[in-house]
């Protein structure tokens, strides 16, 4: 679970690190991905595990479009830039939730029979639910790919360079808007991947994003804004803390542990564990 939190948070951290924008519609991106996975299963009987790359690709396009249609303009605001970004992405989140209610109805849905659903695997005497295990493996793989991508490819370098100095990259012929759009696409694709896997073992409904979004923000902030690695590490910590709190406190209070750890960390280190700002 922690690794999946990490995957969601990495998408958010990537976008933030790139251009200092917190995407308050991130949870809704997750929700869209879960629905995409659900409908691919319901109509075409494609197992979520197979459709995950498709969903990620779709979310990539979606993220890029959102950047070009909304965020690009929010970036131009000269006054109150922070508030404009918060509220334009937040407004977007409300619209997406409304659209989901309109087209998909508020019913709870789930994917009843997937290849992995409900199965468990026994490792050294410990029973692990298979979907979560696969989710963890996919997360690690995705993170490894991302790491490679950022540090070893031309586009990754362009991403880093644009983050360092958007003005200067224009001089060497890199289109800032294109890089940002791709960055948004990539961030959305990561959350898309997470959504596709989570569709197997969570109910899917229009507000599902909200419950994960806050945890994603906490995760990113815990790791430190601007650090993609921090977000992934933050995800693992959050997952562990959640599991431990669930043992000690009643289940309804399990998020309290996550929040308390966040507060504790930022009081001691106001820029998060690996933050650099």
């Amino acid at each position: 679970m922690g690794l999946l939190y990490g995957l969601i948070a990495v998408g958010l951290a990537l976008i933030f690190g790139l251009m200092d924008v917190v995407n308050f519609a991130h949870g809704e991106f997750l929700m869209i991905a879960m629905y995409a996975s659900f409908f691919l299963f319901a109509f075409f009987a494609i197992d979520p595990l197979l459709s995950a790359p498709l969903v990620a690709a779709a979310l990539f396009v979606f993220g890029a479009v959102v950047y070009l249609l909304v965020v690009r303009f929010a970036m131009r605001a000269k006054a109150n830039a922070g508030m404009v970004q918060i509220f334009s992405t937040f407004g977007l989140a409300i619209v997406m939730r409304g659209l989901a209610q309109f087209f998909f109805t508020p019913d709870y849905r789930s994917i009843p029979q997937s290849w992995l659903g409900g199965k468990t695997i026994s490792v050294a005497g410990i029973f692990l639910p298979e979907p979560q295990l696969i989710g963890a493996l996919v997360s690690i793989a995705a993170f490894a790919c991302l790491y490679f991508f950022i540090h070893r490819t031309d586009f990754g370098r362009a991403l880093e360079a644009t983050r360092e100095d958007p003005g200067a990259v224009a001089l060497v012929g890199i289109d800032k808007n294109r890089v940002f759009a791709l960055g948004w696409g990539l961030g959305a694709a990561l959350v898309g991947l997470a959504g596709a896997i989570m569709a197997v073992f969570f109910y899917i409904y229009p507000d599902v994003g909200a419950s994960f979004a806050l945890i994603a923000y906490v995760t990113v902030a815990l790791g430190g804004f601007g650090s993609v690695f921090g977000a992934f590490a933050g995800g693992i910590i959050v997952g562990l803390v959640e599991a431990v709190t669930a043992l000690v406190l009643p289940p309804s209070l399990k998020s309290v542990g996550i929040y308390a750890v966040y507060l504790l960390v930022v009081f001691i280190r106001p820029r998060g564990l690996f933050g650099s700002m």
């Binding site: 509220f87 937040f90 619209v95 409304g98």
Partner: peptide
């Protein structure tokens, strides 16, 4: 209708106002 049209309108207005009038 319970179908979220109010949310769509409401959210769209927030986006538009915050983009068009940052102050």
């Amino acid at each position: 209708s319970g179908r979220g049209v109010d949310l769509i309108v409401y959210g769209a207005l927030i986006v538009l106002i915050s983009l068009a009038l940052p102050q």
